[in-house]
Nucleic acid binder design. Structure first.
Length: 302
DNA sequence: GCGATTTGACCATA
DNA sequence: TATGGTCAAATCGC
């Protein structure tokens, strides 16, 4: 593994610096917006750009950590003499009488989120669903639509609570595809930002998602008791409705379109503007991320 | 016709 | 041996 501990610390420091910078600029922007006749030397657009740049740099650093982690895991698997029927490698030697042959994942490159929606803006294709013992709801299995282009991203989604709806999503491997078809609104600027980066300023999911790692899962399971139960959350896709006989579950693709259905506030005015209400949301996110010690995922992937 | 979803079967793992 | 992850044929929808 190329990434020595010194490099990790350097990256960690850079992430912290960038996040703090982002928070500072966000505060500045908030002040600017709160003053009715602001005519300062810095424009709102400029500050917004600085914030997004700060987050982009941060996410870029995190992304490189994740990539290194994935590579490391793959190398380990080879070194460990993994059998021919482990995971996707099996696909290449696909033999009909060997279907279902796989190695159960342990703890490679994975992380977990709890959310009031199962959407994350990525293009997923469902490939299975299982009733899980001691679980009220079945678990759905998704893989990246671009699996056959080499993208190894997988996710498992399981509803853990019905009222308010709460989904536990476990991700395995990072997207290596560069498709922006359905994730387009997540990308700040496809020309300058890595394709798998998330835009904090335009991602309607961010406010509904809390990042959970294996270490902190129990805490989050508990904390989600107070998750919002807005109409927007309740109207999100529910793949278990068909299974449990509530409503038919339509096509994953047809019911969700980030382009046709941008995030709307209660007035239906599209993306929330930079008013005080929406800014509060951003401020909250920035503060959460500022608490870097609770950002377990960073520790995991680095 | 093509791509996505459903679902029973298969099989490694715990 | 029960369980969970994946495959792939059947089916559906555009």
């Amino acid at each position: 593994m190329e990434m020595g501990s010194e490099n990790i610390h350097a990256k960690r420091g850079r992430v912290i610096v960038e996040l703090l910078k982002g928070r500072e600029i966000a505060t500045k922007l908030q002040t600017l917006l709160n003053s009715p006749d602001h005519d300062g030397d810095v424009s709102v657009e400029e500050l917004a750009l600085q914030i997004s740049t700060s987050f982009s740099v941060t996410l870029s650093v995190l992304s490189s950590c994740a990539a290194a982690s994935t590579q490391s895991a793959q190398i380990s698997a080879v070194d460990g003499g993994g059998s021919a029927c482990s995971g996707e490698s099996k696909k290449k030697v696909a033999v009909k009488d060997r279907r279902g042959c796989y190695k159960r994942r342990k703890s490679s490159d994975s992380w977990m989120t709890v959310s009031s929606t199962m959407e994350d803006g990525q293009a997923w294709r469902k490939y299975g669903q299982k009733i899980i013992s001691n679980s009220k709801y079945p678990r759905c299995y998704f893989r990246c639509t671009h699996k056959y282009e080499g993208c190894k991203a997988l996710k498992q989604v399981q509803m853990i609570k019905e009222d308010p709806i709460s989904y536990q999503t476990t991700y395995f491997n990072h997207h290596t595809c560069t498709d922006t078809r359905r994730a387009s609104y997540l990308i700040l600027d496809s020309d300058t930002v890595e394709p798998n980066l998330i835009s904090f300023q335009s991602n309607p999911m961010i406010n509904n998602i809390s990042l959970v790692t294996k270490e902190s899962k129990e805490d989050h399971d508990h904390s989600t008791q107070s998750e919002d139960d807005s109409d927007d959350a309740k109207s999100s896709l529910n793949p278990w409705q068909e299974t449990i006989g509530l409503e038919p579950w339509g096509s994953y693709k047809s019911e969700w379109d980030p382009i046709m259905r941008p995030y709307q506030d209660e007035e239906g005015s599209g993306f929330q503007s930079c008013g005080s209400t929406s800014f509060h949301g951003l401020d909250m996110e920035v503060n959460q991320l500022g608490d870097i010690d609770n950002f377990h995922y960073f520790d995991d992937i680095c």
